[in-house]
Design a protein around this nucleic acid. Structure first.
Lengths: 159, 159
DNA sequence: GTATCCATACTCGGATAGTGGTTGTCCGAGTTGCTGGGG
DNA sequence: CCCCAGCAACTCGGACAACCACTATCCGAGTATGGATAC
């Protein structure tokens, strides 16, 4: 039960992108967060494949959000990077072994599967309730200064 | 983002144990569910280490629940087998890189960590709301016959 | 007949290999912006 | 002065290894049962 560490990177990148005014290259994002540039590129590619961010090639290219920050939920990012398959996969144990239930009696998921799926839904619902815009607002509220103004300045700066 | 498959086995075993009247050996549980006996033993050991089930050694020994089925939640089992560490681990990215926040400004968790932790709490709350007794009741309601009477008979039967 | 002892077989428990997925890395394809020359 | 062709540098994208957790397995430690034996 472990979530891919790249999810955290992707979330931070999306928050930064929501404040950027121009496409940001993957290398610049990696430098800003002090993480492996090549591996971060992999996560950004996953986000691009999911349609959350768009890539601009060539000089002064990079990544930018495709939708308004308020229209991108944390769940979108987590599913794009970490995979959308539920954490729990029922293998239908009840249909195996000497006391196996006949398939005709297994029209609905078993009780264990229902409980795990309900928990998974609760998890997803909680993540769906938070948008990138919400995150950005909270980050700014946490500190007294305007963090994103500083980031914007650094992004447009040299090197 | 994948939950250990052994969690499903452990849940089924606990439901079966809630219906058993005598200790059940690990090998018998494995035969009932048609799974690897040695690997299932590992999961049962984890449950025993967590204090959810007790082992009786020697002839006619086996595993049995230590508490009433209503006092054992699904979360207890999931944490015992799959580990109790949260799925999301914040690495404090905000304190790294050229725009790092000073540690003095990081008294509370960052917004991303808060959102992920809230979702994790929702997941755990959902699992905590279901007990082994609830599962057993639902399983019986799903079928017309008394499933556990059959299982009890098979458990006391030969080979 | 009863109590004791012992051999047996059965149980769990931790230490030990194999495998898929996440982590980390690399180089090639494609596009943009700039520069220089020509009209 | 304006336009165009060429170049160079920068960007992403997918294909390629290394490490760790989950999967699967084995053999040793310990104990209750059952029977045989002595009283």
């Amino acid at each position: 039960m472990k979530l891919s560490g790249g999810v955290e990177w992707a979330l931070h990148c999306c928050v930064v992108l929501s404040a950027a005014t121009a496409p940001v290259p993957a290398g610049r994002l990696a430098e800003l967060h002090d993480v492996s540039p090549t591996y971060l590129a992999k996560q950004l590619q996953a986000l691009a494949r999911a349609g959350l961010i768009a890539s601009t090639q060539g000089h002064s290219g990079g990544y930018s959000l495709t939708r308004a920050p308020a229209e991108i939920t944390v769940l979108d990012i987590v599913e794009a990077v970490g995979g959308a398959t539920p954490a729990f996969a029922c293998t239908e144990i009840r249909q195996r072994g000497p006391m196996a239930s006949p398939p005709s009696a297994c029209v609905r998921p078993c009780a264990i599967n229902r409980a795990m799926t309900a928990a998974d839904d609760a998890w997803r619902t909680s993540l769906r309730a938070v948008s990138v815009a919400d995150l950005a607002g909270e980050v700014n509220d946490d500190y007294d200064v305007d963090v994103f103004a500083g980031i914007r300045g650094w992004l447009s700066g040299p090197s």
